[in-house]
Design a protein around this nucleic acid. Sequence first.
RNA 1: GCCGUUGUAGCUCAGUGGUAGAGCACUUCCUUGGUAAGGAAGAGGUCGUGAGUUCAAUCCUCAUCAACGGCUCCA
Length: 645
Amino acid sequence: MSEVKITLPDGSSRNYPTGVTGMDIAKSISEGLARVALSIEVGGEIWDLSRSINKDASVRIFTWNDKGGKYTFWHSSAHVFAEALEALYPGVKFGIGPPIENGFYYDVDLGDKEFGEDDLVKVEAKMVELARKNSVFVRKDVSKATALDFFTKKGDPYKVELLQDLADGSITFYEQGNFTDLCRGPHIPNTGFIKAVKLLNVAGAYWRGDEKNKMLTRVYGITFPKQKELEEYLHMLEEAKKRDHRKLGKELELFAFSEKVGMGLPLWLPKGTVLRERLEQFMRKAQIKAGYDPVVTPHIGSKALYVTSGHYEKYGKDSFQPIHTPDEGEEFLLKPMNCPHHCEIYKVKPRSYKDLPIRLAEFGTVYRYEQSGELHGLTRVRGFTQDDAHIFCRPDQVKEEFVKVIDLVLHVFNSLGFENYTAQVSLRDPTDKKKYIGEDALWDRAEREIQEAADERNLKTVAVKGEAAFYGPKLDFMVKDALGRNWQLGTIQVDYQLPERFELEYVGSDNQKHRPVMIHRAPFGSLERFIAVLIEHCAGNFPIWLSPEQVAVLPISERFNQYAEQVIQELKNQDIRGYLDDRDEKIGRKIRDAEVKKVPYMLIVGEKEATENRVAVRKHGAGDQGSVGLDDFVKQFLKEFSMPA
RNA sequence: GCCGUUGUAGCUCAGUGGUAGAGCACUUCCUUGGUAAGGAAGAGGUCGUGAGUUCAAUCCUCAUCAACGGCUCCA
């Protein structure tokens, strides 16, 4: 009998009879493993445990504790969802139903049926019922003709469409209970592993992600092998919602929106403004150190400016519409980006190669007419301020400048404790060249330079096609929000197009005219989005150098208000931000209110403190810290909590 | 922009085909209290907006605006 050599993750290997299954291997390792095994990775592919292995391979058995195991589990859950849906609503047509980071979704076409909350509950119950049947997932190789015939007869046009793109010989069906689906697999051994089911929400999604196609109903769900894990997950979601910047922004009085002002146009309240201005100061300082020159440009610019830049052609009809003046035919646009203005600053005088790089920085407020459905708290707004700068440099300086910007971005992230970011190299979509301007050679060069610069700083990057700006590729720093959604914060872009369009020049050492290269960069991205993500990261407990209110002075009774005034005045003299709570309330109440407002330090003053010029220190979330002299407190505070350099 | 859900006091939310309620916040008074909510009284709402059905609409219908969850988009 022939044998196959199976190598396990620990490097050990064993021989098994040819045709051994993952389940056989699991059992041979331990009965315990066999009971919890969900799928198996064979030579880099994830397989069903029941599939025969016919050649030597490295394997890894997945359980619920592995990402691959969860993936398999949720993929199978999507099939059970589909089975339940079909049982309850015969005639439903199915799109695709993949596993995702947390759970799965299935896109379905329910015809005219409205699918709401009640339906979710019904389908959930049905799923649990079906899962209990311990139906086995059976894999079948089918020919394309058979598959097409099956789904045509069943009346599943979306599956038929999917099949048309698949090659004959590579098509598999999976069947469990009364449900058969076109599926590459793999699946868990049987439905009985699925013990807890929650359908989370209903959404619309265009078929194949194309807005020209029909919109299907997308149902999101998640399943677990234990009820308790589902409860923990739902609890975790609730906790995450408490950190939502929209909730905290309201509670901590940082920003607000007004229907009258207009959607997507944030109003910065006094406390939010302090936070914002602190961040600006921090960035200004860092930029001065890095050789940037601050500039200021107007909020509008004539249409000609954007025709030159190419933005008008690209976004003109999807922007806020032109502002007209009493002069016939004169048009201005609200500025949607700062680059064209900065190009004009570059052009105010002839530049020599010795002047480069020129780094023009501006906290530029821009306005973009985002689609109404896209607006989202502070992370996607119609008016926002970029910590923008444009570096005009010689071609031979691009990489060095790019690397310096990477350092600046990392400095910002480190100073604010952002550790879990993804550095994404955003490239062109090679299949859709119409979306971009400029010659291929320049694009290739820019894409190469970005990757080289990232490599130079040992930045772990992921390359994503189709995410470039229309004028050039980018290096984007992506950070997740409280609910796991990805947002782009910092961005660095190499641009050979705008210098061309604006006919920017410098005189080289050869006394000839040359084109500079432009690097667009914004380490925060936008103040708005950055603050949103910052709020969610620290759950409103800001680093103290950023806190809108750093210290609350709480007199024990009105008798000590006068001393408290002295304390708060001294703090203000030392640039420490704080407030005096001189309300006619008990100290317990004042403390509670300050704790709820997440004020980092509370200074409690009464008889003892007033006579000895001391303060009783209480730290947010940590309680009483004992009493110190006011001067010592101030000294220590300034030492510990000044803005990072 | 598209699909779905929601819209009641400053905030969080009850509630009803016969023009509304709670808690917190707010105002006043009492209280002067030592580390997470002292007590009392009061004020506050065209029930998102517009139209329709009805003797009567906050509630039913339609439209519209906004927010929320997604999709598409994101200079």
